[in-house]
Computed example of a mutant assay.
Amino acid sequence: MNRRELADFLRSRRARIGPADVGLPAGRRRRTPGLRREEVAQLAFISTEYYTRLEQARGPRPSREVLAGLARALRLSDAEHDHLHHLAGSPPGPLSGPSREVRQSILDLLRRLPQAAAIVLSATYEVIAWNDLAAALLEDFSALSCNERNLVRRVFLAPHARERLLYSLDTEAFARTAARQLRATAARYPDDPEVARLVGDLLAGSAEFARLWASHEVRAEPTLRKTINHPMVGPVMVNCDVLDIADRDQQVVIYTAEPGSPSEEALRLLSVIGTQRMDVPG
């Protein structure tokens, strides 16, 4: 274990991540570049004292579980993940949990779709990337925490019925699909604490999810079309196309409207309006 190099590497990775990148408020008196130590510790599910000792080159060799948590919290690339393991004296193995890192080519693709709304979902249904039109059509995801950006949490655990609609009028179909795909995700990542916590929260907080989970269904029918109930432009009917990113266990969901339809005009209007609220007095 190279304690000094590990400490320097952790500090450098922490400094490059802004609070908004992980759904945390920036605060008015933030002097630390990037995340604070306690924020990284919280995201990695370890104590602040232990993480501080790692950054001060005084900590013991971290376990593979701790390294997996740090890799997720610091949003390390695959190469950085392997480097972290080598510095810690623990040869890297397969990633233990779903990846949140979105390939640059996919981010470029989102920006090149000005007439389509597009989001990237992790294997646990967290929205981890989006383009401007998706923020205007669905929600400004940059203003949400990680838990709030998790669509399966929203549909089963949101305290208010309106929040559970998840923009669409066919929420029940999405709930069935999400429960089935999450069971498959849990089977792929049996040792990941974040997946286990998500499933545990859903089982404890939603009788509907518990019923769907007990069915042991893992095959999900694709949703080819849905209607987005937008508060400003009204119902927007869109086609849904899903592209699988197999090596990252992620999905790109692309929403498009039929050419010449009122929904296409609504998307054009939203591309101009963006996320601003026209119904709030200035």
Rank of each mutant, 00 (worst) to 15 (best):
M1A: 13
N2V: 04
R3C: 08
E5K: 11
L6S: 02
F9I: 09
F9N: 05
R11V: 13
R11P: 09
A15W: 03
A20K: 07
A26I: 05
A26R: 11
R28T: 02
R30E: 09
R31T: 05
T32H: 10
P33Q: 02
G34A: 03
R36N: 04
V40F: 05
V40Q: 07
V40G: 04
A41N: 01
L43V: 00
I46A: 06
S47T: 12
T48G: 12
E49S: 12
Y51I: 06
Y51C: 06
T52C: 02
R53D: 03
L54A: 01
E55V: 11
Q56W: 03
G59Y: 01
G59R: 00
G59V: 00
P62T: 02
S63M: 02
E65M: 13
E65A: 15
G69A: 07
G69Y: 08
L70I: 05
R75V: 07
R75K: 09
R75F: 00
S77F: 02
S77C: 07
S77K: 05
L84Q: 06
L84D: 07
H85L: 01
H86A: 12
G93T: 14
S96R: 15
G97F: 06
S99G: 02
V102W: 02
S105K: 09
S105A: 14
S105Q: 12
I106A: 11
I106N: 04
I106T: 14
L107A: 13
L107T: 14
L110T: 04
R111D: 12
A118I: 02
A118L: 05
I119A: 00
I128G: 01
W130S: 12
W130E: 10
N131K: 03
L133F: 01
L133S: 06
A135H: 03
A135Q: 11
A136I: 03
L137S: 06
L138S: 02
L138Y: 03
E139W: 12
L144F: 10
E148A: 14
E148S: 07
R153P: 01
R153F: 07
V155S: 13
L157I: 00
L157V: 08
L157Q: 03
H160L: 11
A161C: 07
A161R: 15
E163C: 10
L166K: 02
S168H: 10
L169K: 10
L169T: 13
D170Q: 15
D170I: 15
A175D: 04
T177Y: 12
T177M: 15
A178K: 08
A179Y: 04
R180E: 15
Q181D: 13
R183D: 13
A184E: 14
A184C: 10
T185H: 04
A186S: 13
R188K: 14
Y189R: 09
D192I: 11
V195L: 06
S206N: 06
L212P: 05
H216C: 07
E217A: 14
R219F: 09
A220I: 01
L224R: 14
N229I: 13
H230G: 06
G234I: 03
M237C: 09
V238Y: 02
D241G: 11
L243N: 08
D247N: 07
R248N: 01
V253C: 10
Y255V: 08
A257R: 01
E258I: 09
E258D: 15
P262N: 07
S263E: 09
A266L: 08
A266I: 08
L267D: 07
R268W: 10
L270T: 11
S271G: 11
I273C: 09
I273V: 13
T275F: 09
Q276K: 12
R277Q: 10
V280F: 10
P281L: 08
P281I: 03
